[in-house]
């Protein structure tokens, strides 16, 4: 049995629903903030996730960082060295999807060459009439960046657990993999 700890960086354009998503996840689907209040700094949410079929758990330090362009630079100073990445865009905004490449670039500057496990999340899947980004397109781009793709609706509380659960699971397998490696090392 082991409790792992990971810092999960939550980024993406302003108003795509990062905070809504993290609150729904953090509250196990009991809290959706109906009124929009822009995150202007970095909000930290801690949530412990049990990994199914193991006795292991991952404590996620979710770093919800402001998406607004003018605030990003100040927030980046508080990103630290993320272990996991959750990149969110709004399915009803082509622009928020296009900006994902810039977010990836920013994040790469903080991970010191490590391959950080990440997910791409298309949020607001409930607004199907206003959808501007097709699943296949998002999925292709996610794959090209080495990210898993998920669609969620924070408002309908649909699928909100999936992205962070999959990240926690990936982190746990990473630990097991490293553990095996270390057991095969020879003395210095």
């Amino acid at each position: 049995m082991v409790k792992l700890r990971a810092r999960c960086l939550l980024v993406g354009d302003a108003a795509v629903g990062k905070s809504a998503l993290s609150h729904v996840f953090h509250s196990d689907g009991t809290l959706f903030q109906k009124n929009y209040s822009m995150t202007t700094g970095v909000e930290l949410l801690v949530k412990c996730v049990n990994i199914p079929e193991t006795s292991d758990s991952v404590e996620l330090y979710i770093t919800d960082s402001a998406g607004k362009e003018t605030l990003v630079e100040a927030c980046e100073k508080m990103w630290g060295e993320p272990s996991l990445l959750c990149l969110v865009f709004d399915l009803t905004s082509e622009q928020s999807f296009a900006n994902c490449s810039r977010w990836m670039e920013r994040v790469r500057g903080h991970v010191q060459g490590l391959q950080v496990p990440g997910v791409l999340v298309g949020n607001k899947s409930d607004l199907s009439a206003r959808r501007e980004v097709q699943t296949a397109v998002a999925q292709d781009w996610a794959q090209s960046q080495g990210l898993d793709y998920h669609e969620t609706s924070a408002r309908e509380m649909e699928n909100c657990d999936a992205p962070l659960l999959s990240l926690a699971r990936t982190f746990q397998s990473l630990y097991q993999e490293r553990l095996e490696n270390i057991q095969n090392l020879s003395p210095g």
């Binding site: 991952v58 330090y61 272990s83 982190f171 630990y175 270390i182 210095g188």
Partner: peptide, 20 residues
């Protein structure tokens, strides 16, 4: 992989950090 493994004089046993 408990921390006692650090001081037992054996490089086969180890203590592992679990993140951050």
């Amino acid at each position: 992989h408990p921390p006692e493994n650090i001081i037992d004089g054996n490089t086969q046993t180890f203590w592992m950090s679990t993140g951050l």
